[in-house]
Design a protein around this nucleic acid. Structure first.
Lengths: 225, 225
DNA sequence: ACAAAAGTGTTCCCCTTACACCCATGA
DNA sequence: TCATGGGTGTAAGGGGAACACTTTTGT
């Protein structure tokens, strides 16, 4: 098919990935100190350009894999950022994506190769471009979605105790949660099922292990932590 | 500054505008029947390409103005749509924006010139591209935001009765609202203020006119209809 | 007098929140 | 025996939803 749009301008399109990581009970963000212009020396999110033969989402997935080695981790679109001057080098339109992964499952070699570091969320350095904006949007998204969609289970072992789940939630939303109320809510979620198995490693008394049942969730997506 | 990104591909970037309109108590959508390829003959949203010298949001504003003659109407970004094949002509990455305007304040000449029509939301024709997806996202957005942010007042005269406001809300969310509960909620909103003036046109008894006070809203953005 | 829209309070229920003690076990 | 994390129920309060009648006035 002929290029029927040829009179219109084309643009660089990038993806920027806001990759939250859970790191021994601390929420971190994957950042890189730039070694090239523009914004050399400044910290930035993990970005990359969208290729000819990939969707924008695929480009984001590719960047995620290149950096963390993780595959098949769903991401959520934060939005498109289209100010003319948002990139001091050239005009670049960027689509931001966001996800939350487990730092332990991350490929530290790949990170090193990209000059990437996990930086605790509470100690973020000054960032280049419009990345602070993107991060703010993404963090709002994360705190909201985490408690209403089953993304916690990507960060937990297949079987987990309720205390593990609770501590994880507290870390992400950065608030204390009442244990009894929390367990009451868990009991209302059909897709979080007790296994009947007692884990003796985590405590002296032992704690029941639960698991998340994807199948049940499909049939009954009720989920409110 | 040199083009430091020249090794990366460039893309066509479009905006698509989901323009909801209120038309004598009915919610409509601004659509055009395409007269050119691709998707000739199919109905579509109002789209356009992002130019060199405008932000993506400005491009959306420009399209809105070209079509409706309206200016300074805020729009909200629905998201970026980046599948490779979403446009059967060329690869085009599109950013969708959404707003709600008053059909009566719309420039019917401009609409005619663009082959654009207000189509009732409940009688949408088959649409080209991925526009059904965009519309679904936007409609969800609209229903959610309308009741928690002061966008109703763009569609009402400066002074309005509570019945006018209620009917408007009902139209947008497509549900009946209990009058007393509604008025109770309005009473809790500091930025909706009674004028003390009685409007005798709308009813025999007459109804008090209210207005929305932007200034109060800035100081006290509490708003839940 | 009557039609048509304006205006006005109360009750109930559910959901959320706050809160404290006993249990089982390994060291 | 004691320290550690696991496990459990109830009461009070707030917010949302349901609900019906009186008022005013133009015709």
């Amino acid at each position: 098919m002929s290029d029927c749009y040829s009179k219109y301008p084309k643009h660089y399109v990038a993806v920027d990935c806001i990759i939250f990581g859970l790191n021994h009970g601390e929420l971190s963000l994957l950042l890189a100190q730039r070694t090239i212009d523009p914004e050399r020396g400044k910290w930035s999110l993990m970005g990359g350009f969208v290729g000819e033969d990939e969707s924008v989402y695929s480009a984001a997935q590719r960047v995620l894999t290149e950096l963390t080695g993780l595959e098949n981790i769903p991401m959520e679109q934060v939005g498109a950022f289209g100010e003319i001057d948002r990139d001091p080098g050239q005009r670049v339109i960027s689509v931001a994506y966001c996800t939350l992964v487990n730092v332990d499952q991350t490929d530290s070699e790949a990170l090193k190769a990209h000059h990437a570091l996990w930086v605790p969320l509470k100690q973020l350095p000054e960032l280049g471009f419009d990345h602070p904006l993107m991060i703010a949007s993404a963090y709002r998204w994360l705190q909201k979605k985490f408690m209403t969609e089953p993304i916690a289970f990507r960060l937990l072992p297949e079987s987990f105790t309720l205390s593990q789940l609770q501590i994880l939630c507290q870390t992400v939303i950065d608030e204390e949660i009442d244990k009894r109320n929390f367990r009451k809510r868990v009991a209302e979620i059909p897709s979080i099922v007790p296994t009947g198995i007692i884990d003796k490693k985590s405590s002296r008394r032992g704690a029941q292990l639960f698991r998340f049942c994807e199948k049940t969730y499909q049939n009954n997506p009720k989920f409110k932590l």
